[in-house]
Amino acid sequence: MEISMKINGAEVTHDVEPRTLLVHFVRENAGLRGTHWGCDTSNCGACVLWVDGTPTKSCTMLAASAAGHDITTVEGLEKDGKLDPIQQGFIECHGLQCGFCTPGMLMTGRWILDNNPKPSEEEIREGISGQLCRCTGYKNIVDSIHWAADHPAENEVSA
């Protein structure tokens, strides 16, 4: 079936099997390989991207269900050649090692801050609790999201 969706603002159309998972559509059809997958069982969150601005595990959604919706992936975070503060925060605070969980963590981190510009440590920990990281023990991820909270981009509305 032919499926169209907006990915990072651009319309993407492909003819795929109805069973195609959104993560595969994004990776294989749209060629955006920043979104990963790690578990098959909706536990790990390596595949998190946004559907209409809401973080979603894209291994547990059919591409067909995403048709007509707005998808944002890690590739969509950088604007006008400038990293989003959440990306910068992960660099500053050593919030990643192997980098495999990072795209999903970034998408959720950005979403946490969009909804709660000054989150507590507990709120951040709760917010990323559906995403597994095997390298960092989460401490530096929490710090990275805090860093981004403390360094909002100029165009961010301060709340």
Binding site: V74, E75, G99
Partner: peptide, 13 residues
């Protein structure tokens, strides 16, 4: 980190 935070890592898959 420059490539990883942009989703530009290159893993086997």
């Amino acid at each position: 980190d420059q490539r990883f935070v942009r989703g530009q890592g290159n893993y086997v898959d």
